[in-house]
Every structure is written in C-alpha cells, then in structure tokens.
C-alpha cells in the first residue's frame, strides 16, 4: 500500500507535467488551428535556458528569462512560418513544424552539446515523510506549481477580456472577427501561452531525479498520447489525459518491471492512445468534430 501511494504520488506529479505540455498543444490547436510538433523542443529550450541562467541569476529571474526566450521563439515561429502556411493545408503545417523541430534540436545540440547536464528544478533532492510514505520535495513543488498555473489559466480564460477573445476565436473564427477581435493577435497569444506552459513544465520535467539532456524533447512528446486520450480540443481532457499518462508510466514502471523487458511502461501510453482512438476517436472529452465515413 505504501508503495502504491508513493508511486501514485509520483505518477500524479509526472502527470501534472504532461498536463501542462498537453495543455500547450491543445491551446495552440484550438487557438490557431495548427498542431505544433516543435512543442517538445520548446520544452527543451525552456529547460536549457533556465539551466544556463541559473549560475548567474536568482532562480526566479532565470525562470523569467527562460520564459522571455521561449515565448520569443514561439512568437517568431508563429509569425514567420505558421501564419503564412495556415491556408496551405494540414500536411504543410505538420511538415513545417516538424522542420522547425529539427532546426531547434540541431541548434540546442550546437549550443549545449549532446551530454547530460544538471537538474534545472526549483527545489533540490530533499524528501518529506507523511505517514510512512516518502514524498520527494520536487514532486510536491511540481503539483503545487501546476495547480497554481492551472488555476491562473482558468481565471484567465473565464474572467479576462483576452481569455474571452481567445475562447471566441477558438469556437468560431469568422464570428470572432466580426466582433472586432484581432485574430492574428489571438494566434500569437495562444502560442505565447503554450510557450509559458512549456517553460513551467520544463523545469519540473528537469527536476530531481531527472536532469536536462537532449532527449528531454522526446520525453515531452509523451504528452501527445495525453492530448489524444483527453481529446484534442479539450482543456480538461488535456489535464485528465496528462494525469492518466503520468500514472500509467510510473505505476507501470513500479509494478510491470518484471514483464516485457522492463520497458513496458514506456509504450503503455501509446497503446492506450490507440485503444482510445478505436473506441472514442475524438478522445474522452473532445467534441465529436471528426465524423466517420
């Protein structure tokens, strides 16, 4: 039971990280009708910049600096590339973001090399014991920070004019345009929000016991099953999907280590994703936009 609670806690912590990344995917998809395959590399950029600034600045300034850099990168990609390709069809957009992903990955390796670096988390490797269950401080920080960010996002979408404008754009672009909403600015805003979420996710993805390495972008891609499981246009779905994927991975790593070569937990999210696509192609919370023919 202790083991279960411990794994469950870590699963939820990892799941919150996936939820933040998945939310980024969903917000970009809803806000600007594009799926950004380079989002994993945005997460990597966030982690690397925090790590680079940490020795020179207080942690919160390093974090803010990373947000500035990552948001600038996202806005650059959105303005120079995605805006031009919006009317060119899905294939073009998919390939373009994949191209950006390859470029950013090469740049990261050029600047920081292929080696693994230290941890970029806000808290160290300490633990607290609650009723016999050992909880890492980094996990507690992850959950607390994610909940705060999610609450802030909720307030933003529900209570601010920009949030309302974003929701309007997502639900009907032409109608939003007719109401005087600057659609282009909303596209940029959705990418900026996604980039901020990517940075928040990155510092927890790279906190104890994990470290910053070039494969962090690939780890971030595990949020893709979360997006599909939850439904590609559902914010709640992204959070639930993220938690499911996190729990499956950690519980799978704990209990299925003796089966299937000990790496079964790495593919379980993808298997579940395919199952969900068979049973509910639009995800658990997605709208039934995609019909079967």
């Amino acid at each position: 039971m202790t083991l279960f609670l411990q794994l469950g806690f870590q699963g939820i912590a990892l799941g919150m990280v996936y939820a933040l990344i998945a939310l980024g995917f969903v917000i970009m998809t809803k806000g600007s009708n594009t799926f950004n395959f380079a989002h994993g590399e945005f997460v990597a950029v966030g982690a690397y910049v925090v790590l680079a600034l940490m020795p020179h600045l207080p942690y919160w300034l390093a974090f803010l600096g990373s947000i500035v850099v990552t948001v600038a990168l996202a806005l650059l990609v959105e303005a120079t590339l995605l805006r031009r390709l919006l009317d060119k069809g899905l294939t073009t957009v998919v390939l373009a973001t994949l191209g950006v992903s390859i470029m950013v990955h090469a740049l990261i390796l050029m600047v920081w090399g292929v080696g693994t670096k230290g941890s970029a988390g806000p808290v160290g490797s300490g633990t607290v014991e609650v009723g016999g269950v050992v909880l890492p401080l980094s996990g507690i920080a992850t959950i607390v920070a994610s909940v705060i960010v999610l609450a802030a996002l909720l307030v933003f979408f529900r209570r601010t004019p920009y949030g309302l404008a974003l929701r309007a754009t997502a639900s009907h672009q032409e109608a939003a345009l007719a109401q005087g909403i600057d659609i282009g600015r909303m596209f940029a805003l959705s990418w900026a929000i996604a980039a901020v979420l990517a940075v928040v996710a990155s510092i927890f993805l790279a906190s104890f016991p994990r470290v910053v390495s070039p494969s962090i972008a690939l780890v971030a891609l595990a949020a893709i099953p979360a997006v599909v499981i939850g439904g590609m246009d559902s914010l709640i779905g992204a959070v639930v999907g993220g938690l499911i994927v996190g729990l499956i991975q950690v519980l799978g790593a704990g209990y299925l280590a003796d089966y299937g070569g000990g790496k079964l937990h790495e593919v379980l999210p993808y298997v579940l994703m395919l199952l969900v696509l068979v049973v509910r192609p639009y995800g658990l919370f997605g709208s039934r936009g995609i019909e079967r023919v």
């Binding site: 799926f35 599909v228 590609m232 696509l277």
Partner: peptide, 10 residues
C-alpha cells in the same frame, strides 16, 4: 476511423 490531425498524431 480517424482523419487529418488525429491520424498524423495517432
């Protein structure tokens, strides 16, 4: 069963 973006991601 799935199309477009869902298929690409799936």
């Amino acid at each position: 069963r799935i199309r477009g973006l869902y298929l690409a991601v799936g």
